[in-house]
């Protein structure tokens, strides 16, 4: 099973491997400028791990619910 943003803990960073899911979800994620190879960092998680707050790049902060976060797959190495 590929690892996604959901599997990252607070304050952990990772590189985006691939964006999966339906066209709508992929389009939304893409429009925020999240591309494969980018670094994302988990800023915090709300109760029971949802939603997830993410820092992307230098100054792009946003949050998304688990059902979207699982579409952002991450590399295993970091």
């Amino acid at each position: 099973m590929a690892r996604s943003l959901v599997d990252l803990k607070r304050k952990m960073s990772a590189r985006v491997k691939q964006i999966v899911g339906g066209v709508d979800a992929r389009e939304k994620i893409l429009e925020l400028g999240i591309l494969p190879g980018d670094t994302v960092e988990i800023l915090g998680k709300s109760f029971f791990g949802c939603p997830v707050a993410v820092k992307h790049g230098e100054s792009n902060f946003f949050a998304l619910r688990k059902d979207h976060a699982q579409f952002i797959l991450i590399e295993d190495d970091i």
Binding site: K28, L43, P51, S59, F61, F62, L64, R65, H68
Partner: peptide, 8 residues
């Protein structure tokens, strides 16, 4: 589902 902007 939703995306939430967290402005600076």
């Amino acid at each position: 589902s939703f995306f939430l902007d967290l402005p600076l």
